[in-house]
Amino acid sequence: MHKLLAKLRLRDRHLARLVNIGAPYLWLGLFFLLPFAIVLHISLAETALAQPPYTSLWEWVDDGILQIRLNLQNFSTVFHDELYLAAFLNSLGVALVGTVLCLLIGYPMAYAIATAPERWRVVLLMLIILPFWTSFLIRVYAWISILKPNGLLNHLLMGLGVIDAPLTLLHTQTAIYIGVVYSYLPFMILPLYANLTRLDFSLLEAAADLGCRPFKAFLKVTLPLSLPGLVAGSMLVFIPVVGEFVIPDLLGGPDNLMIGNMLWTEFFGNKDWPLAAALTLSLLGLLVAPFVLMQRLERRIEGEPS
């Protein structure tokens, strides 16, 4: 009896350990690998007028032969059509400029919050987070009524006599950047803030004591030490902006050619799910590869023997 109980308990412990180790893998499998496999599967299929609108990859032909048809056409289309490349480059450009703008605006803000008196920090952080309580779409829509020719901003500027005729702000590249900066700024500020509050300010005093002027001390000490926060914030802005669809669609001009819109057209307009899937995977590859490389490089630098 006791032996049996002990055995059971042992099995339970094994089970618990298995669950502990398995949970993250299960998560990864369920929410990354499985969808990835589905997308990969679709990307190798051909379009069909059916439900779902693509062909099956395998088919049993007689005599127990499994026939697998892999269509690589989609990937070759993606890489040979300069329109996709142009959209991809444009997306990268928008994401890059957007990230730099977020950085230029967000860094001083994060720094100011991190160095503000304790009782103010909570309030200031709340002000950063508060807009999240409203739907993202509603907030982007609000920008339409601010930026449009008859909108708040033009009324204000004309009322102040700064301009005579309404400025064309909406449906321009500028409007996209305004939308991107507005929507993604908190993603830049929060990691930077978390990093900067941990900064030991006696390091800046030490730098000053060693003859370093404040701006140079910032460049030599604060900036390198906040690099992890800066990288985290930039990635949190850059990656989603590359695939951004709503902001360019609502605020952008007719010439905004972003990969998100291309995906939309392939998926909805052309009903070409396989091509859309191939495009997604290529995007993923082109985005992830540099980051993986960067991380490898970083690890190598850190692992360097002293």
């Binding site: 379009t47 007028l49 329109l83 142009a86 959209a87 007719p254 010439d255 905004n256 050619l257 291309m262 057209t265 307009g269 052309n270 009903k271 070409d272």
Partner: peptide
């Protein structure tokens, strides 16, 4: 047809993007 639709959409994307 699918092919015509794709052609049309492709032309349309180019027009919008001024390419």
């Amino acid at each position: 047809s699918d092919k015509q639709l794709r052609d049309l959409n492709r032309r349309w994307t180019r027009i919008k993007a001024e390419r």
